[in-house]
Design a protein around this nucleic acid. Structure first.
Length: 536
RNA sequence: GUCCUCGUAGCUCAGCUGGAUAGAGCAUACGCCUUCUAAGCGUACGGUCAAGCGUUCGAAUCGCUUCGAGGACACCA
């Protein structure tokens, strides 16, 4: 319908000898009295034509002739408002019921390969709230973009080499020695979480003191594998299924890291200072240079990460999205410098920064850290409030909002979570349809020709546009807000209108209407990883 | 100190290519179950969009300044 309005305006402008198609903008007014669609084109043309906007609007109005438009009004200061024939809304119902779980799909992403990398937590502990947020965002975005025809790869990068894995091995070893009544020091920067103790326990239960003479590699491997499996398992429970897991170790094998540094050097971005080898990323996007090879000849994390992104570029994506916590934001410039220095286009990488989730207990902020072991895990969250509520909760907010999370409060308030409001609408409809299903989808609505019906129909009709905009803006919460509004409109309709009645035609039309609503709710919730129940 | 993000109702948040009278939920007050699920519906109350200046026919939205909150500025990752 929007396209139709645009075309009609285009034609009118051509008739008037104006060439300004790109200025046409169509809005849906907040107030019903301002029409179904509206354009501000007259206001925009004031400067070009040097005329009063009301005059311009009137002129455009005169040159529009379209039978699907019932009425055109010009309103101060120069808006042109369109009141359209609603039959297209009924046609849309047919579309919904035919396309079913495909309703809302589009192909704006056709032939575009996208990589979304998210969570990528080090396998040195289990997933916590911040990962829950990043996970909900990344996976929902992937679902939305797939729905829009993009070829999406969801990727998890495993930091399975380097210092932190060393610390993990040492931490487990230390806990294990404790169990054997021996002393082994906890490393600096060691991990104190329960999961570390559990792993040590497991070793002790299975092998007693036979691991005392095992070398540290053993503890490292075992710990890493256990934790990684746990992470993957938790993510699956959270309805996230990755396409690819990429290991830092594998990357280091695949690309000779010294070669990467040589290439950087060849391109003029490497120098030596104070016994270390530096990356002059300040020549590119960063404000400071950073070390690539430390004085002790070991590599910094930057090298494998540059290699990892080099690998992603080699895989030929049109766009790569990385999702980081804001605490890593300083890292973006370094990374992009690395990409550029190897001759790739850094604009293909988009880094999304999510505000960290702060943990609140008794109204005070608690420092979460793996080191102290003080945190709320993804598993705690799922156990307490369920996957639906958790996914919905984190999909509700834009990435930019700082969130304070209180698990006790969340527990107490979990039945106030709007996810139940939306699911309730779905369940209500399901229970009616169980009672009586639709007979057919009519060409026209004979009995439901009122604003209440059109309110619902318009919301259902809006879904495909909402999907598009959520994908283009990369904002899953647009979907969440939309589905809430849809449920809201349905609940209001339900309270006002009796669905099942003696009037067979009216009943059928109502059933068609609510079935389409149910399908749309289902499709929208699916995009944010929520599965509505048939019964509540 | 430099850089990044944020500041909208008592609280939690939408509002993002600038549009018409700034919206929800929670909380508060009051109504609505003899009829398909009351985890629902309706009404009321609630605002200097942090402040100031600027750009514009028009600013919560764009620009600058100030104030406030959080974060980043390692030869840790």
């Amino acid at each position: 319908m929007k396209e139709l309005i645009i075309n009609v305006i285009k034609k009118a402008l051509t008739k008037l000898g104006l060439d300004c198609e790109d200025k046409i903008e169509i809005n849906i007014p907040k107030l019903k009295e301002n029409g179904d669609y509206s354009t501000n084109i007259a206001l925009k043309l004031v400067k070009d034509l040097n005329k009063n906007p009301m005059e311009i609007a009137a002129l455009i109005k005169e040159n529009i002739d379209c039978e699907q438009i019932n009425k055109i009004e010009v309103k101060n200061p120069g808006f042109i408002n369109f009141f359209v024939d609603k039959s297209y809304l009924i046609d849309n119902l047919k579309k919904v019921l035919n396309e079913k779980e495909n309703y809302g799909k589009n192909d704006i992403g056709k032939n575009k390969k996208i990589n979304i990398e998210f969570v990528s937590a080090n396998p040195t502990g289990i997933l916590h709230l911040g990962n829950a947020r990043g996970g909900a965002y990344g996976d929902s975005l992937a679902r939305i973009m797939r729905f829009c025809g993009y070829d999406v790869t969801e990727e998890y990068y495993i930091n399975d080499a380097g210092n932190q894995i060393n610390n993990l091995g040492e931490s487990i070893k230390s806990r294990y020695y404790e169990l054997c009544n021996k002393e082994y020091p906890m490393p600096e920067g060691g991990y104190f979480g329960n999961e570390i103790k559990e792993i040590a326990n497991e070793i002790y239960e299975n092998y007693e003191d036979k691991y005392l003479n095992k070398d540290i590699e053993c503890f490292k491997e075992l710990g890493k594998n256990k934790l990684l499996n746990k992470i993957i398992e938790d993510l699956k429970k959270y309805r996230i299924n990755y396409d690819i897991f990429t290991s830092e170790k594998e990357i280091s094998k695949k690309y000779n890291l010294n070669e990467i540094i040589n290439t950087l050097d060849k391109n003029g971005y490497v120098y030596e200072k104070d016994g270390a080898i530096w990356f002059s990323c300040s020549k590119l996007y960063d404000d400071k240079d950073h070390v690539l090879i430390k004085e002790d000849k070991s590599l910094t994390y930057l090298v494998p990460d540059i290699a990892y992104h080099y690998d992603k570029y080699n895989r030929g994506y049109d766009k790569m999205i990385d999702i980081f916590g804001t605490d890593h934001h300083g890292y973006v410039a370094r990374l992009k410098s690395g990409i550029k220095a190897l001759g790739n286009d850094p604009d293909k990488l988009e880094v999304k920064l999510l505000q960290l989730v702060r943990l609140v207990e008794n109204n005070t902020i608690v420092k979460m850290s793996k080191r102290s072991g003080k945190s709320v895990t993804l598993n705690d969250l799922i156990n307490e409030i369920g996957v639906n509520a958790a996914r919905y909760y984190f999909s509700k907010y834009s990435l930019d909002t700082q969130m304070d999370f209180d698990l006790n409060l969340a527990k107490k308030k979990s039945n106030e979570n709007p996810v139940y409001y939306v699911c309730y609408a779905y369940a209500r409809i399901s229970s009616i349809l169980k009672e009586k299903d639709i007979i057919n989808v009519p060409e026209k609505f004979e009995t439901l020709n009122n604003d209440d019906t059109y309110n619902v129909l318009e919301k259902v009709y809006a879904f495909p546009e909402i999907v598009k905009s959520a994908a283009l803006k990369e904002m899953p919460h647009i979907i969440t807000n939309y589905v809430y509004e849809l449920a809201n409109i349905f609940h209001a309709y339900y309270s006002k209108v009796r669905i099942l009645s003696d009037d067979e035609r009216k009943t059928n039309e109502n059933l068609v209407l609510i079935k389409a609503v149910r399908q749309t709710i289902f499709n929208a919730l699916n995009l944010i990883g929520v599965i509505p129940p048939e019964k509540m």
